[in-house]
Amino acid sequence: MAYSDKVVDHYSNPRNVGSFDKNDPSVGTGLVGAPECGDVMKLQIKVNEQGIVEDAKFKTYGCGSAIASSSLATEWLKGKTLDEAYNIKNTEIVAELNLPPVKIHCSVLAEDAIKMAIEDYKKKKDVPAEKEAVTA
């Protein structure tokens, strides 16, 4: 399969590979998989007190398009508010990377991972507050 230049660029020089401590309250983790091919993708965001995504990291074990989609996603996430981040669409990733139809599911995976990471972060934020309310 011929990959676009942008996919090759992200694939051979992936941005923001790595992990944050998933127990850190300022970190949200999204872990998703593609059951058709067995690819897995972990995407994490680090959110500051203003609710801005300060940093993002990913680890993807899968094809070039899946790696490129998540690498691009981490680049886009940095500096965004959580709402802006939640609105990143897989179609934007498809357009930016020129993904062929058979690889669209890779961009869906990245979008799912972003949403899951944001939800995980929000859940972590809410839980301690609720606990306080119960004991008060």
Partner: peptide, 13 residues
């Protein structure tokens, strides 16, 4: 697919 399977896949990778 249970999250713990994904976690296991990630760890083995």
């Amino acid at each position: 697919v249970a999250p713990d399977l994904l976690m296991k896949v990630m760890e083995i990778q």
